[in-house]
Amino acid sequence: MPPSDLADDPQAVMSADKAAVSRALNLVEDRRPEAHTRVTELLAKLKDAPKAAGGHRVGLTGPPGVGKSTLTSVLARAVRQRGRTLGVVAVDPSSIRSGGSLLGDRARMSFDPADAGLFVRSLATAGEVGGLAYAANSAMRVLAAAFDMVVVETTGVGQSEIDIVHVADTVVLVIQPGSGDVLQFLKAGIMEIPDILVVNKADHEELAKRAVADLRGALQTAHAAGASSGQDASWETPIIATSATKGSGIDELIDALDGHRQHLEATLAARRRQGEVQWTLDLFSRKHGEHGVSTLGGLARLKARAERDLDGGQTPLSLCEHLSREYVAALGKTP
């Protein structure tokens, strides 16, 4: 029996059986056409898992070298200490030349291998433009069915942080003292304001204070220009100084995460739905380009369509497949 057959065991995934979760992740990474239907089915079954509805999906992003891996490691330990289970997806870029990748996140993490409540998976972007791997989106959904909290950690500023908005309930941007370019991006509105800002490596109190003050200034400038966090005007982005090596600021970070999750309670379903709509459109337009979009009636129409159909029980993957078939059929009709 091919081992992948076991991947379609949503019950085992929902009970956080590590072998089942791992096989499910292997399946969602599988790009063969014959895997596609099974992925679609699996994700549909996991969609309404009890954990998935109540859980918290966190996107953690920031420029290279700011200590995201170590921060994730420390955060994971603290989350576990609070009695919650956690799944982590660590995304690293693939080499464009070789297609290979070096997934080094685990090297910076210390974890207890016997802990059934912590699961870490590294993913390569597989050369995809946009930072977040195609698979990361699905991987997040698999882990969300199994664990209380899911953290997707991704490197970069700009595109990846836009992508992460589609899958995360809460977007955390991590920088370090002296990340001047991020300040400029925020001020200029090139970058969307995250839900939580973290100044990591805040080992030197003075430097950290200054960095926090600079960020506060940048946020004010951005707000004055009309920007708001995740288009959510009622949320004020907290700025937290952490030191992953000293372990300071981690409790504040978890409190802020919980605070944002609570803040979202009423709008969470809509926010996730919005993310799914966006993902569906992304998937479709990456596959078929502008021509595909215009053939099916343009962006606004597709968006409305996605909103309706996703309410009707479709998942982004199944809907995208559906739309693809329509597009191909439409192509056949044009001369």
Partner: peptide
Amino acid sequence: RDVGFDVVYE
């Protein structure tokens, strides 16, 4: 990595 594996290094 350079020949194209996805490599997890711990």
